[in-house]
Design a protein around this nucleic acid. Sequence first.
DNA 1: TCCCAGGTAACAT
DNA 2: ATGTTACATGGG
Length: 281
Amino acid sequence: MKMHRIPAHVFNLDYTLRCGQVFRWQKRGGEWMGVVKDSVISVKQKGDVLVAKSNLAAEEIVSYFRLEDDMENIYKHIGKDKLMKKVIAKYRGLRLIRQDPWECLVSYVCSRNAPIKKIKSVIFNLSKNFGNVIKSDGHIEYTFPEPDMVAEATLDKLGICGFRYGKKQAREILEIAKLVGGNNFDLERLKKYSYLDAKEELMTLRGVGHKVADCVLLFSLDKLEAFPIDVHIRRFMRREYFQDENISDDKIRELAREYFGKYAGYAQEYLFYHERSGGEK
DNA sequence: TCCCAGGTAACAT
DNA sequence: ATGTTACATGGG
């Protein structure tokens, strides 16, 4: 275990890990514990320094938390109006996380029409049943299973993870695991594609629609213009930008990408957290 | 009992 | 091309 002290300006660890983009981090006594790339990592924030205990290299931690993103520049792009500026000020320092594409894909396929608590339990069960055990400081953690480890599972064994739509979703996960594990679907390659081309590829997978595709693109494939539309964002956008009109997701997506521009995804995550927190303050 | 939850695919206009 | 519905389930 190495100890890292990483400079982190315009960064808020709590907002970043609490806003709902990741599902496997837990806060225990002032420290956040997570599993990144087969290693346990614990992090805490001391002012403008991110203190991390991990076997990961410092660069990997910087990349994971997207500490290279120039937040002031991003705020300049997405701070289009009074409301947006207010939300930015409220959650200043919230950063997108650069997740592993495979874990991100599975997580959001399982997320559909489910409360976040449910998603967390499904992801935990997948890790516990199919991932590897890691022991650290007396705690037992699990890696997120590789595609092959899921692909070899039976429908019944997958089923005990408690998917939202039962065997229907277990079948989707199995099918995706076989494609990704068998090198018939290269997630990493999508990073080189344009946003729209990568999205089209992702949506050929059964179980992946606009929302899941946009989440995977935004949270793991560096497509910061992606603007995932879920129930919360839909409600927010209709209320704040369309006078409560029952506008379609296509229209919302069109407006959001045009209005917020190449960092629309950052705007989305701030608004998502804001709306889900009830917009208080 | 009804409504909601980080939706998608199949089906109907 | 756009609108509607089945799917499946624990919690408020």
